[in-house]
Computed example of a mutant assay.
Amino acid sequence: MKFLIIIPAHNEEDNLPFTLDSLQQQSFEDFKVVIVNDGSTDQTSEVIRKYTDSDSRFETVNLEKSAHQPGSKVVSAFKNGLKTQNKDDFDIICKFDADIILNENYLSEIEKAFANNPKYGLVGGLLYVEKDEKWVYEGNSNKHHVRGPMKAYRKECFEAMGGLRETLGWDNIDAILLENLGWKEIVLPQLQVKLIKVKGADYTIKPADYYGRYFYFLGLNRFLTYVAAAKEAMKLKSPSFLFQIIGSYEKCKSQNLELKISKYEQEIINKQRWNMFKKKWFKI
């Protein structure tokens, strides 16, 4: 199987070498890497050039500077890289971040999982961050969800679900849609992916506003949004946080902001979330 790996990069001069070095050190070598330089103002382009000049598997795409918005910017950059390639030449399509470090057997284990399991549609490892000079499990989501920094899709699955959506919540939307189509999302816990920096640190959006917008662009109805908002507020023991999330969500609804998912896909997502709610709270 052959991999197409697309890496959006914005001002990643310090982190990108670790990611690209870890790819060059992979035991599995049949891959192409497209680094999308998304309007970087630092030395990212010079870093990329060192690899494209010495390794024919590495290519680059240069984009103009765009607004840094959670979700949409990174997927837009990914799509710009994807359209430079012929998908028919590849079996596995990956969206990787520019600040991760992969074990040398990462691609070989991913390839083996896809080859041995025809219904696997999305495969990845677990995300680890550095804390007190040790690499520990990030723990921001359940261990059965492949996080955004290291997505690997079977090409047929990727195409069946319509690719990635330029919206906040894209990395949850993909998992729900592919599962509805009969594909499986699989995490290989033995594959530890090191995340060099903390996600979201460079976003200007406030946490409550983030959650409100996230629930809106995920297509959740009011009931499920309010339940999810209450869950987040309970974590902080802050009633005001609940109302701030709801306010952000309702503002999006009043503005009728465009969703990147169809009505049918919204129904799929709400049904999945409702089933999760019933299973957790009513054991049905």
Results as ranks from 00 to 15, higher is better:
174 D>E: 13
33 V>L: 02
281 W>T: 06
119 K>V: 09
208 A>G: 01
62 N>Y: 14
4 L>A: 10
245 I>V: 13
97 D>I: 10
152 A>M: 05
277 F>I: 05
135 W>S: 01
192 Q>N: 08
135 W>N: 01
20 L>I: 10
102 L>K: 02
270 N>T: 06
178 L>S: 03
140 N>H: 10
180 N>M: 00
211 Y>T: 00
66 S>V: 14
24 Q>K: 14
96 F>K: 01
30 D>V: 00
173 I>K: 00
230 A>M: 09
155 K>T: 02
137 Y>K: 15
266 Q>F: 07
49 R>N: 12
37 N>I: 04
231 K>Q: 14
47 V>H: 08
72 S>D: 11
145 H>Q: 11
136 V>N: 06
185 E>Y: 01
54 S>T: 15
56 S>V: 11
183 W>S: 04
118 P>I: 07
230 A>D: 03
239 P>D: 07
270 N>C: 10
284 I>W: 06
6 I>C: 12
16 L>M: 10
46 E>P: 05
27 S>Q: 04
277 F>S: 01
264 Y>H: 13
18 F>W: 12
209 D>I: 05
14 D>G: 02
252 C>S: 06
157 C>P: 06
159 E>N: 09
174 D>F: 00
220 L>G: 06
171 D>N: 10
56 S>E: 14
143 K>V: 12
110 I>M: 09
91 D>R: 03
203 Y>E: 06
127 L>A: 12
188 L>G: 12
84 T>C: 08
275 N>F: 05
243 F>A: 02
112 K>V: 03
6 I>Q: 10
64 E>N: 13
73 K>R: 15
261 I>K: 02
100 I>A: 10
